[in-house]
Simulated assay, not measured.
Amino acid sequence: MLHRSKELLASLDKLRESPTVGKYILDVRGLGLMIGVEFASPSTPPGDVAYHADAPKDMAIRVSKKCIEKGMYLLTTSIYQVVRFIPPLNISGEDLAKGCEIFAAAVEEVVCEG
């Protein structure tokens, strides 16, 4: 499990470093394989840490929907722009890598759509 957690976090950190989408990923947090990714939002009040004027609106739900369209189920939180990864503890490296690719593609699509 620890190895898979490191793989997931490394993939998400790589996405955070992307010049196109990284500025919209505010935080990656969690323990083990229970990981949350928080996105910036244009809807929070200016001055709020999550505020980013040119961030795509409703990013978490839009990313989640795109992931579902691509075959990966991803949870969102109720009021914050956060998606949650909760894969099975026995996930294979191949399946985890595929999920990370799906997530990265979904985030990039939402950012491109604006």
Rank of each mutant, 00 (worst) to 15 (best):
L2C: 08
L2I: 12
S5Q: 10
K6G: 01
L8C: 13
L9Y: 10
L9E: 14
L9M: 13
L12N: 01
K14W: 11
L15P: 10
L15M: 10
R16W: 00
S18Q: 00
S18D: 15
S18F: 00
T20D: 14
G22L: 02
K23E: 06
Y24T: 13
I25T: 06
I25E: 00
D27W: 00
L31V: 12
G32H: 07
M34I: 13
I35H: 02
G36Y: 10
E38A: 04
A40E: 01
S41F: 00
T44D: 05
P45F: 14
P45R: 14
P46T: 08
D48Y: 13
A53M: 07
A53G: 10
D54Y: 02
A55G: 09
K57S: 09
A60W: 06
I61Q: 05
S64C: 09
S64N: 03
K66T: 03
E69R: 07
E69L: 07
M72W: 08
M72P: 02
Y73C: 04
L74K: 01
L75C: 08
T77K: 05
Q81I: 00
Q81D: 09
V83T: 14
R84F: 08
R84H: 02
R84C: 06
S92W: 10
E94W: 06
E94I: 13
D95F: 03
A97C: 13
G99T: 01
A104E: 15
A105Y: 08
A106K: 02
E108A: 10
E109T: 11
V110G: 09
C112L: 15
E113C: 08
